[in-house]
Amino acid sequence: MLYSLAAMLRAAEWAVTAAFALATYLVLVLWTGGIGLWSLSELIAGAVLSAIVGMVAAPILWERGGFRILQPHRWVLFFFYLVGPFFLAMARANLDVAFRVITGRIRPGIVRFNPGLKTDLGKTLLANSITLTPGTLTVDVDDATGDFYVHWINVKSLEPKPEEVCGPFPSWARRIAE
């Protein structure tokens, strides 16, 4: 029974990876022929290739679990996060950099804070968000403790709270990924 459960899990991992690869391929070869929007040869090639990709990539991608991201409401949240607070912060970041390029006024330092995220996906999301938003750049993440080491271009306090460095992003990352 246990063995068959593990086998089913492997099969599910393979199916999800192959489906994702197939979807990517089909988007890339849109408008090539008569069956729907695709030609027959493209459909066959896509099926074969995505099966192979699933076999090769599934054991690596799902090594540490993470099926949570397959829940669709997380995708909707992620989309709203991208077009809403993230985009605004990014626009602000660029004006900030423009200001600093012109005036040359910087007070850099590497600070540490702990947003309390546990999953790999949450940490990746937060680290990338921090890098693209005002005045901050993730230098290192301690996997064991979850500490973030962030290069801050305008240090305001030596022991900052997560909210001081990156605003509402930790709570968004928790909502999307955990």
Binding site: G109, I110, V111, N128, T131, L137, V155
Partner: peptide, 28 residues
Amino acid sequence: NPTGSHALARGAHRGGIRPFRAVVDRLE
């Protein structure tokens, strides 16, 4: 893009480059 720059920053710090005029360096 952000992943690559993050890797570069981490590599630079481990390679021994200190931030210029840093007021604090917790990683060090």
